[in-house]
Design a protein around this nucleic acid. Structure first.
Lengths: 194, 194
DNA sequence: TTATCCATGTAAGAAGTTACATGATTGA
DNA sequence: TCAATCATGTAACTTCTTACATGGATAA
């Protein structure tokens, strides 16, 4: 599912400019999709060339002009066709989990801070999702919203209850290193080298 | 966290060839990282050029030769340095959730099948993770494993308990379309057009 | 006998990020 | 006055995927 297809999807919910599409990506979609301006604007131009969207220029007072895009019938069909196949597997790349995996190489301070930050960030997202009005949205939107909430809450609970596992690993590595080195752990050296 | 860095990480757990690194990616890492041969082999060659890994050729009987890579001291430091910053946000791209979001555009049959398949796939992964021996691995590894299990189980439960939300949306769209069109829903037309 | 596993690699291309350019407006 | 918001775009670059090439061994 590339950015072009995703833009078609957002446009099924109503006309929008490139800027607005990007803003919506910070809303309900943020948990399973992201794209930058640098990919959205070219995508929209290409969709227009292909006749999948139309574009209307809107002059605004005291604001730059807007290019508002609307789906064509073919655009709608193209999007539905795209969704009609089997969805591919989720692509996930979590630097956080990689870091957890190798916690034994890192000082406890750092590991603990990373976990604290992660829990705080997850709580922030949960609050943000919870704050979003929900009554007037469609059941599908509530489904996706609820899915996100369930996953984030599980993550918070898991981290809170099991962080001692990684923190134990990190601590022991540090003690071992302090004993052999006498003083500064490897990470200090690495940071100094930069 | 690019493939090069990730290869360094895998090598902290022991020497390995490119092929073996790829195989390990299908094990405990599969849930938060993936990479293809086409990115692993060039990554290892570049790491060697930079002196972060060394390479030993191992002849095997009745098998192609192997190039076994080992971390150098600088490689180990480079990896630790990489992990010493703040981990970036997870990158997630879920075609499944996008499909759920737009379920009202799709026939109920398809939506239901996609959810059935997803639940089956998630159960498969849970079984696979559960089957992995766990006693002899490090606490960090158990932590990451448990994290994956918790998330997958939450997803299965949520889908099972809330699928009626999206399925209701899909059903209504279909009924509406059947009334206005008199016969074939838009998806059929889209599929025929291919 | 056909597919899959082992094992490494290259080349072409897709896709996306980052950084830059432009410029008015508004709030702190 | 400084940063952020609105608004669009391009260009250079990185990164990764896909497809291909090679070829013996083994299991169904």
């Amino acid at each position: 599912m590339d950015v072009r297809t995703f833009c078609l999807g957002v446009l099924t919910m109503g006309d929008a400019s490139g800027y607005e599409i990007k803003k919506r990506l910070e809303g309900p979609f943020q948990h399973f999709y992201d794209a930058s301006f640098g990919s959205i604007y070219p995508a929209l131009n290409r969709l227009q060339d292909e006749g999948l969207v139309t574009c209307t220029h809107e002059a605004q007072n005291k604001r730059p002009d807007k290019k508002v895009y609307a789906l064509t019938a073919e655009g709608r069909l193209a999007f539905i066709r795209e969704l009609s196949g089997d969805p591919g597997a989720d692509r996930v790349r979590s630097e956080f989990l990689v870091l957890m995996m190798f916690a034994e190489l890192l000082p406890l301070r750092h590991v603990s801070k990373v976990i604290d930050d992660r829990i705080a960030a997850l709580r922030g997202i949960v609050d943000q999702i919870s704050a979003q009005a929900c009554a007037e949205t469609s059941p599908s939107h509530r489904f996706v919203r609820g899915y996100g909430l369930a996953m984030y809450r599980t993550a918070i609970d898991y981290l809170t209850e099991n962080r001692h596992l990684v923190e134990g690993d990190a601590l022991m590595a540090q003690v071992k290193e302090d004993r052999t080195n006498g003083h500064a752990p490897a990470v200090k050296a690495a940071q100094a080298a930069e």
